[in-house]
């Protein structure tokens, strides 16, 4: 009994510590003060001002860029990663091992190495940096994760189904569409979500591949802000909204998964 109380409170303390800074952001999103940590009375002004254009235009356009880049990069890496996973699954065991090893290189590389190496690539080829280079860079570090989430689905599925479809006269493309894709869908969806979150959370790779044409994503915007010494107050409600939506989404998914199992 005592053991249980002790262990529960240990987890409790850790969670409180982990969430304290986030709580601070959420609490101080309800006040107008410029500096995080000053309380100047309850107000919803920051929440309304995110959705107004004008002064905070640069913040909204950074948010917009982040979402667009995230969606394109996630979609592209899902397609590329799924095709690659199907290919890898059909290789000989030896080549499969090699491919899986190569696939982990981008994951094991710290983001600054990925960032610098891609920066050098774009500079050497004198490709001007901007939207395209950021998206390409994001596809580079997202695709391995898609491969990793699709491959287990392939391993779990009955390999004879696809052959059976072919024997029954389906063209390979029909067989892929009707047999393979439905089986792979859950892996593709989790790969897509993972790629999207990796993309919107990325800072280092984006910073090195975004160029200096004034393009900003949320994270480079925050970085520039932090270097100037302050945080645009509107970032508080924005983070609060993002956090609460992800929390709700995850709890719903978890509940649904639990129900399915029962």
């Amino acid at each position: 009994m005592i053991k249980r109380i002790l262990s529960t409170s240990y987890l409790g303390i850790l969670l409180v510590m982990l969430y304290a800074p986030i709580l601070i952001i959420i609490i101080f999103s309800f006040t107008e003060a410029k500096v995080l940590g000053n309380w100047t009375g309850f107000s919803l002004k920051l929440y309304t001002s995110i959705f107004q254009g004008g002064i905070h235009h640069s913040l909204t356009s950074a948010l917009y860029n982040t979402l667009i880049i995230g969606l394109i990069a996630a979609a592209a890496s899902t397609v590329l990663g799924t095709i690659a996973a199907i290919g890898i699954y059909n290789l000989t065991p030896k080549s499969q091992k090699v491919m899986q090893m190569v696939n982990t290189i981008p994951i094991l590389n710290p983001d600054i190495i990925t960032a610098i190496s891609l920066f050098l690539l774009f500079v050497s080829l004198s490709i001007s940096q901007g939207y395209t280079t950021v998206i390409l860079a994001h596809i580079t570090f997202c695709t391995p994760y898609v491969v990793l989430s699709v491959l287990p689905r392939l391993r779990r599925m009955n390999p004879n189904l696809y052959e059976a479809a072919l024997d029954l006269g389906a063209t390979p493309f029909l067989a892929v569409r009707r047999i393979l894709l439905p089986e792979l869908k859950p892996g593709m969806i989790s790969g897509f979500i993972l790629a999207f979150t990796l993309s919107i959370d990325d800072f280092v790779v984006t910073l090195f591949t975004i160029g200096n044409e004034g393009l900003e994503t949320l994270s480079t915007y925050i970085y520039a802000d932090a270097r100037r010494g302050g945080l645009t107050p509107e970032l508080r409600p924005l983070s609060a909204i993002i956090f609460i939506s992800v929390l709700v989404l995850l709890l719903v998914i978890n509940q649904r998964a639990a129900k399915k199992k029962l």
Partner: peptide, 14 residues
Amino acid sequence: LPMWINFLIRTLAT
């Protein structure tokens, strides 16, 4: 879950 908040913002909150 805290990973979903941009780490720069989390650090500034710390």
